[in-house]
Design a binder for these strands. Sequence first.
DNA 1: ATTATCAGTTAACAAAAGGTAACCGGTTAC
DNA 2: GTAACCGGTTACCTTTTGTTAACTGATAAT
Lengths: 117, 117
Amino acid sequence: MENINKQEATCEQELIAIRDSLEILGGKWKLRIMRHLNNHIAEINTFKKIQREVEGISAKMLSKELQDLEANLLLTRTVMNTRPVTVSYAITEYGMSVFPVTETLVQWGLNHRQKIK
Amino acid sequence: MENINKQEATCEQELIAIRDSLEILGGKWKLRIMRHLNNHIAEINTFKKIQREVEGISAKMLSKELQDLEANLLLTRTVMNTRPVTVSYAITEYGMSVFPVTETLVQWGLNHRQKIK
DNA sequence: ATTATCAGTTAACAAAAGGTAACCGGTTAC
DNA sequence: GTAACCGGTTACCTTTTGTTAACTGATAAT
């Protein structure tokens, strides 16, 4: 059973927690990939499909970011026995814990765009 | 009056929103600085005080990040007429809109640390 | 045989981010 | 006058991040 309660921490511990999060989720692409997989959770998300739909990402970056996310148990990689071979990436249950993070960033970004216009 | 309602967006727009947010809040220090100011909102936060309490940040980075955040109206910079001169930084009302972002990152980081241990 | 698709990898490079250390001007305390 | 404090700036360097383009190997369609 996952702990969904708010945890208490000192200010110092909070800043360490932010640092930890950014070590795993930081950078230009990881949160976008996680959000995309969350938004297409019912589909088969192959490498090419993700690359098409997460606009602007190169094969090299996508490959590297997917490896990092898999290493942190946020998604799974499955080689399908199709011809030609396709590889399917799926968000894990633990990966879904990232949703609140992407959601606040989506809302902040939408609100900010509205504000500056 | 601020819009605090959830906004709807397509998946594509959501990924753009995340990109926008990260352009302004991304990197190693900005969210930590914002969280620290939010946690010490009742105090006078001078440059030196922030540098002491946001552990590890150099004067150069702190100066640059504070300028960026001020340019985006997330905080204010006030020169106090003390001897020697001190400069006080304070989070703006708009800056407080970042709180949900830092909060989800704090919770995710705390939870992650608990999980891997 | 040639071309196309998928899922990458590799090499070479460029740009951005961040760290270190020295320095600056103004002021005050000794 | 000398040292210390505040709030930075500057120059130099390293690391990280990201881009582009060419290439691989397996398979399948024409």
